[in-house]
Design a protein around this nucleic acid. Structure first.
Lengths: 68, 68
DNA sequence: TTAATATGTAAAGTTAACTATACAAAGGGG
DNA sequence: CCCCTTTGTATAGTTAACTTTACATATTAA
């Protein structure tokens, strides 16, 4: 899933490691999510959104999710 | 994790099975999430939110998630 | 009371999210 | 150039989300 994490991280000038630490996961998890290796869990998505002071839907791109 | 799914489902007068079908999971998944057996994935949370025309944060209760 | 509908639960299996460790490669600053 | 920081990637392992099947229980309607 596409996300704005890298973009936001650059804007805030923090590394993957710093973000990982802030939200309580490993750097590999952040790397994997940025590189779309897998999708964040709901709780992690929330923590990342909180960190950047945004809503989950503003950071994670659900446009590929099949419409209901 | 606490959610408003049951409450919303009752308000909309739909069964677990109907919601499950609408968002593309099994009834057991809805049951388990309502009974807090486990937390929905990000995509499922999004689909449920879309179904009820709400934001993810309005349906899922993140108050127990450790502050960052 | 019986049937039908809605929900709870259980167990076993699969897949995806995440950890841990480790090493390679890219890029900038001295 | 060389060092240092940041990022990419790989592999193996664990845990949690979700499926499938099946049966039990509660509630309502006929």
């Amino acid at each position: 899933m596409k996300t704005k994490i890298r973009e936001l991280r650059n804007k805030h000038k923090i590394t993957q490691e710093e973000l990982a630490l802030a939200v309580g996961v490993t750097r590999q998890t952040i790397t994997s999510i940025e590189r779309e290796k897998y999708t964040a869990s709901l709780v992690l998505a929330y923590k990342i959104a909180r960190y950047f002071n945004m809503a989950i839907e503003e950071i994670f791109d659900f446009s590929e999710v099949e419409e209901i």
